[in-house]
């Protein structure tokens, strides 16, 4: 009895320790985002302060230029958030359109060098992004895709497409082929089988997979850094906040909090699907 209690006490303590380690930076950033510049560098650090929304106002340029303690500064953080949403969502959408049929084909059809091709696709996940960035930069400038949404969505396929293909392949493999055969014998043609049987069965898995790769796309930094100037994603915009030489940490904190909102909201909304997407396919 005593031993059981002790074990659970120790375990609970360990869980708390893990939560503390993981949550502390987030809590700290959230706190910083509500502090005034003077409190940020206070030593010892202050935990009780008068929260202010000024950092957020600066971030979105709604602070009166005079009133802002940073003087006149244009941040316009709203734009990179929108950029990131457009690029990430666009990349996920394109990956689904291209990746679901590809994953299906890899799961269901046999063709020469199939496994080699599948592994080649997965290989992009392992290749360092920097490897492709320099040639991409020149290439994009040459054909006018530099700093365009379409160009960004396109290169983001490097991140999103292999994952979608591989996850989709495993979800399709989890659907017994007899279910498709049964549909065929019931009189359904290929498109009908895909739309009415396969896709509905893939849906829970695909929602999870889409969420997962959206997060991967959202967090990407290097591609946006090199390939955009105006259409920067939120990760790059955060870095730019650090440039002005003055202590800009509270506004950076606010930016970090804002950039976390979209993924966190998605994770909360799609938690159920995310677990499914990571652990298994549509059935069983």
């Amino acid at each position: 009895m005593l031993k059981g209690k002790l074990t659970s006490l120790v375990l609970n303590f360990l869980i708390l320790a893990v939560v503390f380690v993981m949550a502390f930076p987030i809590v700290w950033i959230v706190m910083n985002s509500f502090k005034e510049a003077a409190d940020i560098n206070a030593y010892p650090p202050v935990f009780r302060f008068d929260p202010t929304l000024e950092n957020y106002k600066v971030l979105f340029d709604i602070a009166d230029a005079e009133a802002s303690s940073y003087g006149t500064l244009k941040v316009e953080f709203f734009k990179p958030v929108i950029n990131s949403v457009i690029i990430s969502a666009g990349a996920v959408l394109l990956s689904l359109i291209a990746g679901v049929p590809a994953g299906y084909a890899l799961a269901r059809y046999n063709f020469r060098a199939k496994e080699d091709l599948a592994f080649f696709i997965l290989g992009f996940r392992f290749a360092p992004v920097l490897l492709v960035i320099i040639p991409m930069f020149q290439f994009f400038q040459a054909i006018g895709l530099y700093d365009s949404y379409f160009g960004m969505i396109w290169v983001y396929q490097l991140i999103t497409l292999p994952m979608i293909i591989w996850l989709c392949r495993s979800y399709v493999e989890d659907i017994p082929v007899e279910i498709e055969e049964a549909a065929a014998i019931c009189g359904a043609k290929r498109p009908q089988i895909m739309l009415q049987v396969v896709l509905p069965l893939l849906r829970p898995g695909l929602v999870g997979a889409a969420l997962l790769v959206f997060l991967l796309a959202w967090h990407n930094f290097a591609l946006g850094l090199i390939l955009t100037a105006e259409k920067t994603p939120v990760t790059v915009a955060l870095l730019k906040l650090l440039n002005p030489g003055i202590s800009f940490y509270p506004v950076v904190s606010a930016g970090l909090v804002v950039s976390m909102i979209v993924p966190i909201a998605l994770i909360i909304l799609g938690q159920r699907h995310l677990e499914r997407g990571l652990t298994f396919g549509a059935l069983k």
Binding site: E178, E181, V197
Partner: peptide, 28 residues
Amino acid sequence: DPADRGLSMVFQNYALFPHMSCRANLAF
């Protein structure tokens, strides 16, 4: 095509459509 042969088939593992009610399965 199997769809046009005018047959029905019952599979060993049933192969019902898991996302549809039994009624929808029968109606398919």
